Amino acid sequence: MAGLCLGAFPVVDSGVVGARAVVTHWAVAPELVGRVPQVTVDASSLYLDHGDVLTSAGTASAIDACLHLVRAELGSAAAATVARHLVVAPHREGGQAQYVERPIPEPEERGRFGPTLDWALANLDADLCVDVLADHAGMSRRNFNRRFAETTGATPARWVVARRLDRARGLLENTTWPIDRIARECGFGSAVTFRQNFVAAFATTPTSYRRRFETSAYSGVAWGTRTT
């Protein structure tokens, strides 16, 4: 049984999944959480195949899941042939995270942090440790940490890394800058640190991401997970 994109909802409702994990489009994943308490919702994979039940993320991921089935049943050559006719990549790297929008808090939600957030966004290549941010906001480190988490939903360190990665994605998509330069521009200490953070966040490398999303080229697709 396959539940593609929103098809994960009736699959979960049917009970055939049991206590196993499913995936659906990241935008509606929160609605599926708790629908059947014992089911785990994975909002990161492009598809999940348990052998008897398969679910996928969005529409393009449904194609990935179907190509996965062709590959599992008929072999990689058959999957490559079908993919070529569909004009899609036969196998994508990464997961849904690379497609998820990460909004910055709206001005009315940012309160007194607004100037500091704006300053940080304009200086992502600078030292943005907690002490520096707290000093810019005119607050103690302890109070800044607490209030920042209440306002943004993240710790200062995690927020800074996320913003740096957002900036990096834009540079990968719209420039031909070397990875080393992008790492420096976004405040990562080295290309290695940049790559480690990028892979941890998006389950794909900066180079693979660039091939997929750069404005001058066709973007390919990502991977799924088969469980046994």
Rank of each mutant, 00 (worst) to 15 (best):
M1Q: 09
A2P: 14
G3M: 04
P10H: 08
P10N: 10
V11Y: 01
G15M: 00
G15D: 10
V17C: 06
A19G: 13
W26I: 00
A29E: 04
P30F: 08
E31M: 08
E31W: 02
L32M: 05
V33G: 05
D42P: 08
L46V: 01
Y47P: 09
D49S: 01
H50M: 07
L54P: 07
L54E: 02
L67I: 00
A72F: 06
A78V: 13
A78D: 10
L86D: 12
E93L: 14
Y99K: 10
Y99L: 12
Y99M: 09
P103Y: 07
I104M: 05
I104N: 00
E108I: 08
R110H: 09
F113A: 03
G114L: 15
T116E: 03
W119E: 00
L121Y: 08
D125P: 01
D131H: 09
V132P: 07
L133N: 00
A134S: 03
A134T: 06
D135E: 15
M139K: 00
N143P: 05
T151A: 15
A154H: 09
T155E: 14
T155N: 08
R158N: 05
R164K: 10
L172N: 03
E173G: 03
T175D: 00
T176D: 15
D180N: 10
D180E: 15
R181K: 12
G187N: 08
A201P: 06
A203H: 10
A203P: 01
T207G: 11
R211D: 13
R212G: 15
G220D: 14
V221P: 12
A222F: 04
A222L: 09
T225A: 12
T225I: 13
